[in-house]
Amino acid sequence: MTVDLNLVGAKGAIAEAAAGKWGMTIDQDICTGCQACVAACAMENNIAFVGEEDAGYGRTQHWIRIERFWDGEYPHVQATPFQPMLCQQCGHAPCEPVCPVFATPHSPAEDLNLQVYNRCVGTRYCANNCPYQVRSFNWRDYHTVPELGNMVNGALIFPLHNQLNPDVTVRRRGVMEKCTFCIQRIHKAQDKAKSEGREVEDGEFTTACAQACPASAITFGRVDHPESLVSQLAHQERGVKHLEELNTLPRVTYLKEG
């Protein structure tokens, strides 16, 4: 007798729908490490800046960061290709099963890893278990540090709050956060398409990072649609997935050099 591991949902099973729904490709050959995606992500997703000291402790809230490694010794030293690292929206996410309060569920509708801020109690188990180290924790109420505001007629006013995106929750102290694949943009595009009685088209919208990228190194779209640009790029020979051996089924494909 054979058991269909996919049906019983066994861990380690290669799910047939392993492709997922939304996916991304990042061309490391043309990524110039310019940080435009990081800034765009911060502006879109209300990510707090943490200041010099907390940044030194590794408490930065970057949802996407650009990794650079050194290889070799002078004069034959090389910087490895810039590697933007963000939540891989794993199909089998190691962060999901460890949450004691189910604040990191897998979205069945969008096939993404969710972070439900109102449910999160801040155990940080998920961050501990993430092999990509892409989750960040709010150690303080960074948005409302009093010294970021100005006293105007006896009231504390935060001019920077004017910039906050109303489509994204402003996280408070004690919750975990991570890249959402700009789920607010996904919802907006789906809502618009539905109101017009059609499906979301490829390239109709994109994530903030992909939109900003001056080199167009980031492509976002439906990986389950074979004709979409992101699927075609992902199936190139130079496509690799990070830590694939952990069977996390990442949705981000990196296109390596060469």
Binding site: C34, V38, A39, A40, N150, P159, L160, Q163, Q211, P214
Partner: peptide, 21 residues
């Protein structure tokens, strides 16, 4: 720029809403 921006362009909002103006 054909629809693209650099990091400094993205952060121009932090100039607009800078608390020190």
């Amino acid at each position: 720029n054909l629809g693209k921006t650099c990091a400094r362009g993205q952060a121009t909002l932090h100039g607009l809403y800078n608390p020190d103006r």
